[in-house]
Amino acid sequence: MGLNDFWFLLIAVLWTGYFFLEGFDFGVGILTRLLARDRTERRVLINIIGPVWDGNEVWLITAAGAMFAAFPVWYATFFSSFYLLLVLALLLLIVRVLAFEYRHKRPEESWQRNWELVLFASSLLLPFLWGMMFANMVRGVPINSQQNFAGSFTDLLNWPALLGGLAFVALCTVHGAVFTALKTVGDIRVRARTFAAKATVVALLLGGALLIWIQAERGTAWTAMALAMAVVGLLGTLAMNAKAREGWAFSFTGVAIASVVAAIFLALAPDLMPSSLNDAWNLTIDNSASGPYTLKVMTWVAVIMMPLVLLYQGWTYWVFRKRIGPQHIPADAH
């Protein structure tokens, strides 16, 4: 395996880590309107992701930075192709941060309700936008012989993109529901499991449809294996959730999300972004990479820094591992 291949693999791992970790806090944000019955329960949901959501976003920054440094042509074409979608995603990321930070700054119910709506909307729309972008990347976008985007925003509005967006939202919602059941006690935990069971069926249908389309579009034996693993993951989620084994259910939702992301990158390889105009104009692992010296330096940095990041995040989750419920929320703190 050359350094080009190694960095393609590492970027796939970084995106997988992002969707695995940020996926459940997107899901919990969605559940603040679909599961929580009052302000106290919404506070419980916000508290279970409060210590970790910002650390989860580090994976997005690292994935984008790795794309820029290892495959600058891919980075440039990706960001120009999905410019409007990425600007919208950036705005949603910003207002989502504000929702976490500003909600508790004033006690008025209307103030807190408005920021909760912002949190819900941003948590819902962000996975939808990411799903649209990655589905379009598999489908192919108009890239010309100069490796530039030669289309318009309307080229990105197609049924595979819509399917990708809906599938990502469904998967994140299941992931968040199972995480809620894992991190809470009492009635909200029971309702989270009930919600997770229903949401898993929806995710199985939408995620399965997306993976079948990927298999038909650019399928290989590897993508077929990823499809099978995603199905196993969601079926395992159903089984473990029914037995109230939330830890195992969460692991299985993680397998499903990782399998979907793996299917996308496996379908792309050895391409990075296929051109819908001419296969000869595809961006590939070889024609879009930085020089060998750059990749070598980056590899040493990654070897040193990645274990430290994993250790730090693991420690954070261990510190905040205990379950909470409405009884842990003070009456005057919403």
Rank of each mutant, 00 (worst) to 15 (best):
W59Y: 03
A135T: 03
A69P: 02
K198G: 06
P142R: 08
V141S: 06
I48G: 08
A203M: 02
Q112N: 02
L206M: 02
T173R: 04
S110T: 11
I11F: 01
G325V: 03
R106F: 05
A167E: 02
L235C: 09
M67W: 09
V87Y: 00
A161F: 05
V231K: 06
R42Q: 14
A302P: 12
A289C: 09
R96E: 01
L227M: 13
I329H: 04
P160N: 06
K105F: 01
S122W: 01
I48D: 06
K183I: 03
M133G: 08
V95E: 06
I285W: 11
A269E: 08
H104F: 06
T184R: 02
E246V: 03
V58M: 05
R96Q: 03
P107N: 05
I257D: 07
I212E: 11
L277E: 13
D279R: 10
G233Y: 10
F320E: 04
M132C: 12
R321D: 15
V231Q: 07
D187A: 11
F71T: 06
K105E: 08
F8C: 10
L129E: 08
A69V: 05
D5S: 11
L163E: 01
P274K: 11
V201K: 04
T194W: 04
W281C: 00
P72E: 00
R191G: 02
L311W: 06
P274R: 14
E109M: 04
A228T: 09
Y75C: 00
R113K: 11
T32V: 09
Q313E: 13
D332V: 12
A70T: 00
V44K: 00
L163M: 02
Y18P: 10
W300N: 14
V319Q: 12
L295H: 08
A258Y: 15
F120W: 11
N47R: 14
I324E: 13
V255F: 04
W315S: 12
K296V: 07
A76R: 01
M229N: 13
I143S: 02
L308P: 02
A36Q: 07
M133W: 09
I46G: 06
V297Y: 02
R218A: 12
P292K: 14
V190T: 13
A280V: 07
P292W: 09
M306V: 09
S152Y: 05
D187Q: 11
G2T: 03
L119A: 13
K322L: 14
L171C: 09
A66D: 00
I30M: 15
I30W: 14
D25R: 13
M132N: 04
L84A: 14
V201H: 01
R42V: 12
F19T: 03
L210W: 03
A177E: 14
N278M: 07
N4D: 01
S251Y: 04
T154F: 15
E41Q: 12
W281N: 00
L156C: 03
D332Y: 13
D286C: 08
L129N: 09
T184G: 01
I324L: 10
F120M: 09
K198F: 07
W53M: 04
S123L: 03
E101Y: 01
N287Q: 02
T299H: 15
F134M: 10
T299L: 15
